[in-house]
Amino acid sequence: MPKHLPATLLEACAHLSNVDPVMGQLIREVGDCQLHLQGARYSVLVRSIISQQISVQAAKTIRKRLQRSLSNRHLSPRTVAALSDTDFKTIGLSRQKRGYLRHLTELTLNGTLNFRSIARNPNDESIISTLVEVNGIGKWTAQMFLVFGLGRLDVFASGDLGLRKAVATHYNLPTSATSQDYEALALQWSPFRSIASWYLWRSLEM
Rank of each mutant, 00 (worst) to 15 (best):
H4S: 13
L5E: 15
A12W: 10
A12R: 08
L16A: 07
N18D: 12
V19A: 08
D20W: 04
P21L: 03
V22N: 04
G24R: 10
Q25G: 13
G31M: 07
D32L: 05
A40Y: 01
V44N: 01
V44I: 03
S48V: 03
S48F: 11
V56M: 14
Q57K: 13
Q57E: 14
A58Q: 09
A59I: 00
K60S: 13
I62V: 06
Q67G: 09
S69T: 12
L70T: 14
R73E: 13
H74Y: 11
P77A: 04
P77D: 02
P77C: 03
T79C: 08
V80H: 07
A81I: 01
A82T: 08
T86H: 10
D87R: 04
K89P: 02
I91P: 01
L93C: 00
Y100N: 09
R102H: 06
L104E: 01
T105I: 05
E106K: 03
N110Y: 05
N114C: 07
F115P: 00
I118C: 02
N121S: 07
T130C: 05
N135S: 09
N135D: 06
N135M: 12
G136K: 06
I137F: 02
L146N: 04
V147W: 07
G149Q: 00
D154W: 13
L161I: 10
L161Q: 10
L163Y: 13
K165Y: 10
K165I: 02
K165T: 08
A166Y: 09
L173H: 12
S179L: 13
A184K: 15
L185A: 07
A186P: 10
L187K: 15
S194W: 12
A196V: 05
S197R: 10
L200F: 08
W201P: 06
L204Y: 05
